[in-house]
């Protein structure tokens, strides 16, 4: 384990992320403007806003997945466990081990259910078969999928329904033992029942994980999150306790958005 991860592990604070003056550009277009916010541990932080406001960009910056787009430039600091994730001493591979991600569209690998879950542990060096089986079971139980798939672990993951696939992706992310799970509109491709199951799961997960979730649905943010950030055209308009945002927002634009007056 390298030094940077040891630092990640040892640091104790109730802050998971401390974002300071984050700016981000796609080429010449500025997508995030001077964003500062603090994300607390073991809480669900929702990010809401109309399409194109930069919420997906923001969440992908938290594990530096955004850097896969070559034209992206960032400025500012994101402190994760008190270390700037843009610092040269940070290896993205280690950051992403500690910060898992679930995507908008369920994206299991075209492999068996079991192989999907143990992919992460395997690439991080766990070879022992019984250990991997244990990881698969724990993770699938953690993602509330075990009962549904325990008899067909060797079946292809593409045989699962969309909701099950998404829970498999959550199990796959959990198998790497992250501290934080980022979710980029995890239920936008799912039907209401599957959505309900995922929301129930998120509520369970926050005991052990810090969750940041981007969502299109304001009801979802209101139902599951502790804190909500409202982004509009790359700017952080308001960030507060979820009840406050939905009942008594400070900013007129937040009020317009959450009451459905636009967007």
């Amino acid at each position: 384990m390298s030094e940077s991860v040891r630092d990640f592990n040892e640091y104790k604070s109730n802050l998971a992320y401390d974002v300071k003056n984050l700016n981000l550009w796609y080429g010449k277009d500025q997508a995030l403007k001077d964003i500062s916010l603090q994300i607390e541990k073991n809480q669900v932080t929702a990010i809401i806003g109309p399409s194109g406001c930069g919420k997906s960009t923001f969440i992908k910056t938290l594990n530096r997945m955004i850097e896969n787009i070559p034209i992206v430039k960032t400025q500012g600091e994101i402190l994760y466990n008190n270390k700037d994730i843009f610092d040269k001493s940070i290896k993205v591979e280690e950051l992403r081990t500690k910060v898992g991600m679930v995507f908008q569209k369920p994206n299991p690998f075209p492999k068996s259910i079991y192989e999907n879950v143990v992919y992460g542990p395997k690439i991080h060096g766990i070879k022992d078969k019984s250990m991997l089986m244990e990881i698969a079971e724990t993770s699938l139980k953690g993602a509330a999928l075990w009962e549904e798939v325990k008899d067909r672990l060797n079946d292809n993951a593409y045989g699962l329904s969309g909701g099950q696939q998404q829970r498999l992706c959550i199990a796959r992310a959990m198998a790497v033992q992250p501290e934080i799970i980022l979710m980029d509109e995890p239920t936008s491709a799912l039907d209401p029942i599957a959505t309900y199951k995922i929301e129930e799961l998120i509520d369970q997960l926050k005991k052990n994980y810090t969750i940041v979730i981007v969502t299109h649905s304001m009801q979802q943010a209101a139902r599951i999150s502790d804190k909500t950030a409202f982004l509009l055209m790359g700017e952080l308009i308001e960030f507060d306790k979820t009840e406050k945002i939905f009942s008594n927002p400070r900013d007129k634009r937040t009020e317009d958005y959450v009451t459905g007056r636009f967007g």
Partner: peptide
């Protein structure tokens, strides 16, 4: 090869 598969792997800390 769909980009979302590569993303899934990279997001788990794979090189």
């Amino acid at each position: 090869v769909p980009g979302f598969l590569k993303e899934a792997s990279l997001a788990m800390g794979a090189t």
